[in-house]
């Protein structure tokens, strides 16, 4: 069996029963050590969010706040604005998930995220992440926003490292690109470049290509600092409304 967080063989298997739900965690020794031992360090401007969940374990100075932001309701400053509100993660019950939703102010261990994550519930259809892992199918479109950060490593594995959509969009999302407003096209281009860089950085880190990762990180930083205005918002992922607009 493969590790939940990387492609290594899982050697540590945990079954946690919380809130009446069984949560399984299968980790390799390296990821398990990181889950137990990681401590927050000083903040870093580069926040690759969910694309690089293992960043803090590498020689590259990437803040765990990036990881924490991955589980927060408001993503890091480098996130496209439309993604900021995309993570309506609910943590019903005993508040065990609060730590994971407190963003950069609290430590966010992998362990906590696994426990909290498995109990994360989609506000639209009430599917839990644990149920999704069991059945392999989402319940509704809003599940993707609700489980966004937990899904990212799974999607990267299933799609050969792909974490961000490229390609066709519905007409209602194409408006921003074709809008004649000055600067619109370069901003979109920057967004795409950022997405590519994040994906490449995550891949480089997971392959332990630290030299390459450092170069990508520098490029990412340069691009972020050069970006002067927020990207045009497209549309937030709304919970199901049970009807068509």
């Amino acid at each position: 069996m493969k590790c939940d967080r990387c492609d290594n063989e899982a050697t540590i298997h945990e079954l946690i029963v919380a809130q009446g739900q069984h949560v399984e965690a299968h980790l390799c020794e390296r990821c398990a050590r990181r889950a137990k031992g990681r401590q927050p360090t000083s903040g870093d401007a580069v926040s690759p969010a969910d694309d690089v969940p293992t960043a803090s374990d590498t020689p590259i100075s990437l803040s765990p706040s990036a990881d924490a932001s991955a589980h927060s309701a408001a993503a890091g400053a480098d996130e496209p604005p439309h993604e900021s509100g995309d993570v309506p993660i609910e943590h019903p019950g005993d508040g065990a998930g609060d730590g994971a939703s407190d963003g950069a102010t609290e430590e966010s261990s992998d362990e906590a995220s696994i426990i909290a994550g498995a109990r994360t519930t989609c506000p639209g259809c009430k599917l839990t992440f644990a149920q999704f892992r069991h059945q392999g199918q989402m319940g509704c479109p809003a599940c993707y926003a609700a489980f966004a950060e937990l899904l990212a490593p799974l999607l990267a594995r299933a799609h050969e490292g792909g974490t961000w959509h490229v390609g066709k969009k519905p007409a209602r999302y194409r408006g921003a690109e074709s809008a004649p407003a000055a600067g619109a096209a370069p901003v979109i281009a920057t967004t795409r470049r950022l997405s590519m860089l994040r994906a490449s950085l995550a891949e480089a880190i997971s392959n332990e290509q630290y030299e390459l990762a450092a170069r990508l990180r520098d490029e990412l930083r340069a691009l972020l600092s050069a970006r002067s205005s927020p990207e045009p918002d497209a549309r937030s992922d709304a919970p199901p409304r049970g009807d068509l607009a």
């Binding site: 496209p80 989402m138 993707y144 899904l151 799974l154 799609h159 961000w164 959509h165 390609g167």
Partner: peptide, 26 residues
Amino acid sequence: DGLIDFAFSPRFGYLTSCPTNVGCGV
């Protein structure tokens, strides 16, 4: 596309029941 609002996220692309099809869905 003009007659149905397709489920879509700028990040994940076309949203599908099984995440193995998400993205371009092709």
